[in-house]
Write a protein that binds this DNA or RNA. Structure first.
Lengths: 147, 147
DNA sequence: TATTGTTATACTCTATAACTATA
DNA sequence: TATAGTTATAGAGTATAACAATA
């Protein structure tokens, strides 16, 4: 059969989708980390910044839910972004427990620059896929993640 | 257009393939960890055991390369599997620096049981995909991971 | 009583440097 | 000099419990 694959060094593990998912992600993450280093952003702080720019006024509980991380682990990420003047914790109208997270002008500018760099990164690491394959992969991953 | 998606709470982040890759993997990993808990195996120790069963006599450097992890981080994984009598470090013929890793009978048995459980796990987390979609996803991930 | 943000803590995963014994 | 296995360590990611302020 010409659908036989060359035996990879990780053998039948390669038959598992989950294993290939992990190996693919590790390739992508390594390139992304390098791409974001110039902005001193990690993957999660980039994601957090992007959402604050897109949904100004969001609070930390909502942001943690959107990113699917713990509230407690978000604190230091917000601390870092706020410390660099990229976002601000402002009073939340009508509820003094909450902080309305707002991007600064500088934060919006950096978010846009970083977004372009991440777009280039995606073209790089997914460049071996045809446009059709990329939309297929996107659709399949979306299905899996929303189980 | 009916290809419009409902706006997800993570907004335009969802347009990035890498982000969906990460979210999909986190769903898969959570289910896998639960599935392997009954064997007191983690994802990586399961993978290591499977490869030793498949490639008896492999040494630690080769195993680390096959799993794409650091040799140093493999040591405790091997310690744990060996401590449970699932594999053994045996003398490597002709080179006393190396260990030839060999599965025990019990190790082979557990590997087979765990493999079946992981197969069920994959049917569970990828069950919303058609067989065709699953092979498509496998092919696309293999392309990405081998960049 | 419940929620928001926060602190502290612990566990896993990952990466690097340095050591030993062997080659 | 180089390689295989090992130890120690530090950074990052992740999860849980508990607290103060506020609702």
């Amino acid at each position: 059969m010409d659908s036989m694959q060359d035996a990879p060094t990780d053998g039948r593990l390669s038959a598992f989708l989950g294993y290939n998912l992990k190996r693919a992600l590790s390739v992508v993450q390594a390139d992304l980390a390098q791409a974001l280093a110039q902005f001193q952003l990690r993957a999660t702080s980039f994601s957090a910044l992007l959402i604050v720019v897109e949904r100004p006024g969001i609070n930390q509980t909502e942001l943690a839910e959107a990113l699917m991380i713990e509230r407690s682990n978000l604190v230091q990420i917000i601390d870092s972004l706020a410390g660099r003047g990229l976002i601000e914790r402002t009073p939340f109208p009508g509820d003094r427990r909450r902080h309305a997270l707002m991007p600064t002008a500088e934060g919006e500018k950096l978010a846009e620059q970083a977004r372009a760099v991440v777009s280039d990164h995606e073209d790089r690491v997914f460049g071996m896929l045809t446009p059709r394959e990329r939309t297929d992969l996107h659709r399949l991953l979306t299905k899996v993640r929303s189980v």
